[in-house]
Design a protein around this nucleic acid. Structure first.
Length: 935
RNA sequence: GCGGAUAUGGCGUAAUUGGUAGCCGCGCUAGACUUAGGAUCUAGUUCUUCACCGAGUGGGGGUUCGAGUCCCCCUAUCCGCACCA
């Protein structure tokens, strides 16, 4: 009986569905384990072979854990809100809800074919009101909490109010609380709420018509679409993620992630220790500005100050003589796009304000400049410039001919004239020179000494600064969660929790409104009736109980920040998730997904979880205990070369140099075979190529190729369905794992899939499968057979634990080869192998398990244990070396000692004699390792 | 510029963690069965060589009886951040 994968796979998938075999309960005697995949955004392109890579790996692990006796939570869902569906809606008029629905159906169909053990009864969709109700709910909690730095956790904003009222609040108030009206109070509280509305510089993308978070912008271009992004001051909702910066750094110590990803997050958070110092402005009574420096030890080397162009003090301090010039510079700097600014970082620009600051330690007058190399978003937007010891300050000083003063030297006698330097001395290894009371101190001592002094003088303090910025939370978009917020007298109010979800209204026009409002401005009834406690039915502006609702929606990361908690209790309408559910599952034990989320989702989710932890909802401070980043599967693209002079002429790759060609044009990999273009198919491919002519080499058109990201636009997408159709899901699963280590990025290549398919067929044949079952013997297995079996059990178990699936599959192949060579048809050897292979190839395992006469599912089998006794070697092979030079191998009993070793070496045949009868000076014998003879 | 990672046959990779480098698969070569095969099976396949010998894990040095593995210095590639004070 042949291995009929098609019949086997469809049959078992149907049985699994019918028996709900992958459904898990929140209660169980067995220990719990939570295996999570990053849920996909259901794009119109469907799944390509890269998507399932991580899912297959996690599925193997989930199935393995189940066989090891764990109650395994392994859910799947959809990150269904997002830009592409909306862009598509603008182009075609198709409602995003509809395209999303279709895409989800397609994804589900594709996923089902691969045989995952997901519990689909727990499916979560971020665009489902039953789910986003809790995203909105969390937003309200964020709005209603502030970060208490004393207890280091989020506390209700009402506590802050009572602290103020009791006079226990240490931060300063612009005027007494009792004298403030509601608006003034709200304004004050807004600076503390964890979700807050503020005028902040944002990344504005005109083409997308929305603002973007920092992680959504790379090199001044939007990640989605690659459009230019500019800096703009706008009133936006933000999350005060910076309040959690230190906890986000500290938490990394407690999780089992790769060092590289932890490092990426540490860099993104960018913690740096230093000092804040106030510099008074000369001739401006009481005026001073704060700077941040990581090098307080260089304060005696300050020769000028620099403010960022956005700095609020510029207007007050600029002298009349300089006003014109400064204004011009500020305008110029503000109008530059992010991209321009980043491209020209090496060009020095700036302008003198005419004002002077006083160095508080030396009372020197130092000029104040404005320059865009100081950034508004970092530190205080103002710096003390030490040109001798900072490369940027150095370049600026050289450009404007400002003095450079050395205050640090490698050693006290290595002081030189800075005017002869070609670069600044940035190293922190050295001693202070020309620096009053710190002269002679090492850099580190000098830093503490200066901090101590400025603290005593009351002009500064030790502080920590973070690169991380608050997360901008509004998007001027339609297809996202509506904010549960309405505006009364210009002040934001959240709608009552019990009125959630605030449903996203239906609209037909997805573009911004004529007056530039977000698409929700098109909604007919988008106002809150405070009295009726629901979305207004009439939209009557003259009704004094009706107030406009927020028109922005939440960003993509809102829905994905807490979904892993919702899977624990996905149908709960009373709470985000029940106490029982979270107490049982705790947090995610294993999270599998791409490293590209390192500075986005994985930071936001950790923040979200920490906040819920502070609220007493999440029970673990870190959401994802172990994290594995699967590598990206790249595509191999093919190109044709079009002549510049004749747009119908295409020139073969190796002769393309003959005449000028345009940039290489991507061609669909499905009409190229081994880099040879199918000319007829190419002409049919697109109307514009119908009359294409070719310059061939050896009668063929050879295409160029390159490894690129797999994407629809590059026509290099390999669809998993085709492979399942041709080889079956088990082969696809095995092959994706066999390709190489899961963590590694690799180009897709189907060449090896035949080998994996052959293996599965060989494996199947080993069981002598007939219609009536497997014809196997039950005699005592031979020692060789047992050894192979137990070696394999050991190897596979260890490999799965360390996520090394490519080596597991090699081990299966070796084992099958060896047993076939021994003509093994022993049930007691082969049956455990079915359980071993079940996580990898569940369909074939289920079928064989059944054919072997088992009534239950192989999922409910027990993972085999290996027997050390079967692995013990009778003899051990030792390399024998003389004076370190390896000569030959000798076989000794497993329990041999040094004397046995020497005897064995002496007994070697004549041809390998080593000492001509002389006694060795020393014999080094390392049990099971080596025999070395020193002559 | 800063930070992280990687480098092994024609290709994807493996190496019990310091102990005979190259498991497994692809590809290739030869043979068998075939009218035929892009089907199946068998054998071989790091390089050089008829064979022996020898060389060999990006390059150079070091530690060690012994290094793909540990240390130092280069080189190349990939990834993250980037005027972050």
């Amino acid at each position: 009986m042949d291995y009929n994968f098609r019949e086997i796979e469809t049959r078992w998938q149907a049985i699994w569905r019918k028996t709900r075999i992958y459904h898990v309960e929140n209660k169980c005697q067995r220990p719990h384990y939570y295996v999570l995949d990053m849920f996909p955004y259901p794009s119109g392109a469907g799944l390509h072979v890269g998507h399932p890579l991580g899912y297959i790996a996690s599925d193997i692990y989930a199935r393995y854990k189940r066989l090891r006796g764990f109650n395994v939570l392994h859910p799947m869902g959809y990150d269904a809100y997002g830009l592409p569906a909306e862009q598509y809606a603008i182009q075609t008029g198709q409602h995003p809800a509809k395209t999303t629905q279709q895409n989800i159906a397609r994804y589900r169909e594709q996923l089902d074919k691969i045989g995952f053990s997901f519990d689909w009864e727990r499916e979560v969709r971020t665009c489902d009101p039953r789910y986003y109700r809790w995203t909105q709910w969390t937003f309200i909690q964020l709005f209603n909490h502030y970060y208490d730095n004393e207890v280091n956790k989020a506390r209700p904003i009402s506590e802050l109010v009572s602290k103020i009222e009791r006079g226990e609040w240490k931060e300063k108030l612009s005027k007494p609380w009792s004298e403030m009206n509601e608006e003034e109070r709200e304004k004050y509280l807004m600076d503390y709420r964890l979700a807050f509305l503020a005028d902040i510089p944002v990344n504005w993308c005109p083409q997308l018509g929305t603002v973007l978070a920092n992680d959504e912008v790379v090199n001044g271009l939007s990640v989605r679409g690659g459009y230019p992004v500019e800096r703009k001051l706008m009133r936006q909702w933000s999350l005060r993620i910076t309040a959690y910066a230190q906890r986000l750094v500290d938490g990394l110590e407690t999780v089992d992630w790769t060092d590289s990803l932890k490092e990426i997050q540490r860099n993104w958070i960018g913690r740096s220790e230093g000092a804040a110092v106030w510099f008074p402005v000369a001739d401006h009574e009481g005026a001073r500005f704060e700077i941040f420096t990581t090098r307080p030890d260089t304060i005696y080397g300050v020769t000028f100050m620099v403010l960022c162009p956005e700095h609020e003090m510029i207007d007050t301090i600029t002298t009349e003589a300089q006003r014109e010039e400064v204004a011009q510079y500020v305008t110029w700097a503000k109008n530059r796009s992010e991209r321009e600014r980043q491209a020209e970082t090496k060009k020095v620009s700036g302008v003198f304000t005419g004002a002077y600051a006083i160095n508080p330690l030396t009372n020197e007058r130092i000029p104040i400049y404005v320059s865009d190399y100081v950034l508004a978003g970092y530190g205080t937007g103002a710096i003390m410039a030490v040109p001798a010891h900072d490369s940027r300050d150095f370049a600026f000083a050289r450009h404007f001919n400002l003095p450079i003063r050395q205050v640090v030297a490698p050693s006290a006698d290595e002081v030189s004239d800075p005017s002869t330097w070609s670069e600044s001395l940035d190293s922190k290894i050295g001693v202070s020179v020309n620096s009053d009371f710190i002269t002679g101190m090492k850099v580190k001592e000098a830093m503490s000494a200066v901090i101590k002094r400025i603290t005593e003088m009351g002009i500064g303090f030790k502080t920590v600064n973070y690169r991380l910025r608050d997360a901008i939370f509004s998007r001027q978009r339609y297809w996202g969660e509506p904010f549960p917020v309405y505006y009364k007298n210009g002040m934001p109010y959240t709608i009552p929790e019990e009125c959630l979800p605030l449903q996203l209204p239906d609209i037909t026009d997805f573009k911004p409104t004529a007056n530039g409002e977000p698409p929700l401005g098109h909604a007919k009834m988008w106002a809150w009736d405070e009295k009726e406690r629901k979305v207004s039915a009439t939209n009557a502006i003259d009704n004094k109980n009706v107030f406009p609702l927020e028109l922005s929606t939440m960003p993509g990361f809102a829905g994905s920040s807490g979904y892993y908690l919702r899977y624990m209790d996905p149908t709960n309408d009373e709470a985000y998730f029940s106490k029982e559910a979270v107490n049982y599952w705790q947090n995610v034990d294993l999270y599998v997904g791409g490293a590209e989320h390192g500075t986005g989702h994985l930071i936001y989710a950790r923040f979200w979880n920490k906040f819920l932890f502070d609220l007493g909802l999440a029970v673990k401070e870190e959401p994802f205990q172990r994290l594995v980043n699967q590598g990206m599967i790249q595509g191999r693209s093919n190109f044709v070369y079009r002549s510049k002079n004749d747009s119908n002429l295409f020139i073969s790759k190796n002769i393309a140099g003959r005449e000028e060609t345009t940039v290489p044009i991507h061609v669909d990999i499905n009409i190229v075979n081994n880099d040879i273009l199918d000319i007829e198919k190419f002409r049919q491919w697109r109307p514009e190529f119908a009359d294409a002519r070719f310059e061939l080499e050896d009668g063929k058109y050879v295409c160029g190729w390159e490894i690129e990201k797999m994407s629809k636009s590059m026509f290099n997408v390999q669809n998993p369905d085709d492979l399942v159709e041709r080889y079956g899901a088990d082969t696809l699963r095995l092959y994706e794992m066999f390709l190489g280590p899961v963590e590694q990025s690799k180009p897709w290549d189907t060449k090896g899939i035949e080998g994996v398919f052959r293996f599965l067929r060989k494996f199947w044949k080993m069981f002598c499968v007939e219609d009536d079952g497997c014809h196997l013997t039950t005699f005592d297995p031979t020692r060789d057979e047992l050894k192979i079996l137990h070696q394999t059990i050991k190897k596979i178990t260890e490999d799965i634990e360390r996520f090394s699936f490519n080596t597991s599959i090699s081990a299966f192949m070796t084992c099958t080869n060896d047993l076939t060579a021994l003509s093994c048809n022993n049930r007691r050897v082969l049956e455990p192998l079915v359980v071993l292979i079940a996580p990898f190839a569940p369909h074939i395992a289920e079928e064989l398990w059944h054919k072997l006469g088992n009534q239950n599912s192989v999922c409910d089998a027990e993972w085999p244990k290996y027997d050390e006794q079967c692995l013990v070697e009778d003899t051990v092979s030792y390399p024998v070396s003389f004076n370190g030079k390896m000569r030959f191998m000798v076989s000794l009993p497993a329990d041999a000692n040094a004397d046995d070793a020497l005897a064995a070496v002496k007994a070697m045949p004549e041809g390998q004699k080593w000492l001509g009868g002389a006694e060795p000076k020393k014999v080094i014998f390392v049990p099971k390792k080596i025999i070395n003879i020193v002559l």
